[in-house]
Amino acid sequence: MNDRPSDARFPREFSVTQTHAFHQVDVFSSQPFKGNPLAVVCDADDLSDAQMAAFASWTNLSETTFLLKPTVDGADYRVRIFTPMGELPFAGHPTLGSCHVWLAYHGKTGMQDIVQECGAGLVRIRISDGRPAFAAPPLRKSGSVDAETLATVAAALGVASSAIVDANWTDNGPGWLSLLLKTRADVLNIRPDYAALGHFQVGVVAPCTHEDEVETDFELRAFCDNCEDPVTGSLNAGVAQWLMGKGVAPQRYVASQGTVLGRAGRVYVEKLDDDIWIAGEVTGVIAGSVVI
């Protein structure tokens, strides 16, 4: 772990500082390659913002996280979350995946309650049925969607107005706007026009029925940044707050996401007292070291 490669192996423009433990995990799936991948770099306190951003761009995953020592009382660890384009204050699957790696890396797998420090503040995490779960953050924007915006989004998704049951802002940071559709088939049949969708970050959800022959209660899809996200913790958190508030969703359910992409994401949602917890399996795929 502490052996440093000779300078001859690296171009002059790279400053080799340290070898870091590195993990890549699959979040929201008990099967490798069926969830949402996440790269995690441990003991990253010595890395600069530029180094973190460059490595996250290189992995080309939706998110890469860096584990650091906490800077505030009450936190067990600190995480910084980067996309290939920049840093995020909070995201769902990076929170669960980072917690899983931190617990294993530090031999704390028996802990049941963890506090993560991130750009959005302190996030409570608990272990529920062997799965990490985060407490859904409060919505920054909620309420109905204006008719013009709804028409634009529906047209970009190719969704007929007759298939839309309701629409609401479910923004807990990324800017989510969510549509409740009538059937699971309505969700799975969407073929988005990303150019027409523009800057909107859109989630769609529909209840599953016995006719769907699936073991989950809801089907979701997430369209953001000109692509479809396989499994999305922040969207599921916002949708849960909305649907439970409407009385559409029970206080405990399982959602599936990523079906169209060939994934098998499963999100476990539970309301306890005033908190809604978003949980998912985390499966290790790659473990090793990286020089940054």
Rank of each mutant, 00 (worst) to 15 (best):
Y194V: 12
N189Q: 14
R221M: 07
N189S: 15
A196M: 02
G247F: 12
Q241A: 06
L235M: 11
Y194W: 13
V205A: 03
L197D: 06
D225C: 02
E219C: 13
D186N: 13
R184I: 03
Y253V: 11
L180H: 08
R191Y: 10
F218Q: 03
G233D: 07
Q201W: 11
P230M: 13
L181A: 01
T183I: 08
D186R: 09
C224K: 04
V214A: 08
I190L: 10
E219L: 06
E219R: 07
L179W: 00
A222V: 02
A195P: 09
Q251L: 15
D193N: 11
V202H: 02
L235A: 04
F218Y: 14
L180N: 05
T216C: 14
P250M: 08
C224Q: 14
G245C: 14
T216H: 14
Q241M: 11
S178Y: 06
E213C: 08
L243T: 01
T209I: 13
G233P: 02
T232R: 04
I190D: 00
A206E: 04
F200L: 08
A222D: 10
E213A: 09
L180V: 03
N226E: 13
Q251C: 10
C227I: 10
H199R: 12
P250Q: 05
L179A: 04
E219S: 14
G238L: 01
V202T: 00
R252N: 14
H199M: 10
T209K: 06
V231W: 05
H210I: 10
L235E: 01
C227K: 15
L181S: 02
L181D: 02
D212W: 02
G198Y: 14
A237H: 00
G238F: 02
W242K: 05
L197K: 05
Q201H: 15
T216M: 12
D193R: 08
Q251Y: 13
D193A: 03
S178A: 11
A222G: 09
E228I: 06
Y253K: 09
E211D: 11
